[in-house]
């Protein structure tokens, strides 16, 4: 596809697929609705239950999963460039779990009650702490980075599970933090996510070439004009904000940041100028499809979306890990 399809054509096709999937995701679910009802709910006044479901439940959920997919995909691309490791993703580095742990702990300590923006702030603190820890533990080494991240992620997830278990009678819905869910999405949450996504994209997108240069050896990158340390810190900061905002309202969604960049690379090649928009669209499509499947394939019961992304992502991780020359 790389050779035969122009980049603009690829983007148009991905946009069409995403728009179709958005409409499909709004229409299907435990209550099925037709396109006319969707249109009237989106553009008219809410007059019946179906329109209420669309406006207040399905639409925030669909926009939330689209945003989250694009954000996690983008984070994966950035982490992979900063750490020069194609297996880096917010989940495997422990950044998602760090954010999730901070939110779970904060919620049960009562820090987040009544003030919605405190949740992403807590998530950001947790994600930042996890980023710093994983770099310190791995001594910034390629060889031990993913192993350190997975170990840290397991530890954070275990503590989160313990917190959730100890407080299971108070708040059963928090189980989503361990496997991810868009079930509690609201328009207010979507707006906070969108603001964080806009800020991160504004930092990352103009620096696509800098991400290409980060993949080179340090001497080459410097000689081509890159301030390596400053770029790394800036990109890590932006990706950490993005991860925190994606994770804080929907929990840890495994492998989403790994799947999207790899599918995108197969479609448009490795240059970040093309890879960033393609990954954002692919990430949105993958996570929306996964969430739609999660809430429809088991009838009235809902599967955590992280289960589906992990089923898809784990084999990719294994295939990358077994590829000659790749370091875990």
């Amino acid at each position: 596809m790389k050779g035969t399809l122009r980049f603009s054509q690829l983007i148009i096709i991905l946009c069409i697929v995403l728009c179709t999937l958005i409409l499909l995701a709004i229409c299907i679910g435990s209550v099925k609705v037709d396109l006319a009802t969707v249109a009237s709910a989106l553009f008219g006044k809410v007059e019946n239950t179906q329109q209420y479901i669309i406006r207040s439940i399905r639409l925030p959920r669909v926009i939330g999963s689209v945003l989250c997919g694009a954000m996690l995909g983008l984070c994966g691309v950035v982490f992979q460039a900063v750490f020069r490791n194609q297996m880096a993703d917010p989940y495997l580095l422990g950044v998602s779990s760090g954010a999730s742990l901070a939110v779970a702990a904060g919620t049960f300590a009562g820090i987040t009650s009544g003030f919605l923006p405190s949740i992403p702030l807590l998530a950001f603190a947790g994600a930042m702490l996890a980023s710093v820890l994983v770099m310190a533990i791995s001594h910034n080494s390629q060889r031990t980075l993913i192993l350190s991240g997975v170990a840290l992620s397991s530890l954070f997830s275990a503590i989160t599970t313990l917190i959730v278990y100890l407080h299971r009678h108070e708040l059963s819905s928090v189980l989503f933090w361990t496997m991810g869910s868009f079930g509690s999405m609201s328009m207010n949450k979507v707006l906070i996510m969108a603001a964080a996504a806009a800020a991160s994209f504004a930092i990352i997108v103009p620096r696509a070439r800098a991400l290409d240069l980060l993949l080179l050896d340090e001497g080459s990158a410097r000689s081509l004009g890159l301030n390596v340390e400053k770029t790394r810190i800036l990109m890590l900061g932006a990706a950490t904000i993005c991860t925190a905002a994606a994770v804080c309202f929907c929990g840890v969604i495994g492998f989403a940041g790994l799947l999207a960049p790899h599918i995108a690379r197969a479609l448009c090649g490795p240059e970040h100028r093309k890879l960033i928009p393609t990954t954002a669209l692919v990430g949105a499509i993958v996570l929306l499809a996964a969430d739609t499947a999660a809430r429809t394939i088991a009838g009235s019961a809902e599967i955590p979306v992280g289960v589906i992304t992990s089923i898809l992502g784990a084999p990719l991780f294994v295939s990358l890990a077994s590829r000659k020359g790749n370091t875990i």
Binding site: R209, D217, S220, S223
Partner: peptide
Amino acid sequence: AAFVPQYYILPDGFSVKQIISMTDYA
């Protein structure tokens, strides 16, 4: 000043042309 390093990293997936084109950063 341009630089030819002793040890280099050539990332996966990039063609020779794409590697050389990275000079457009500065």
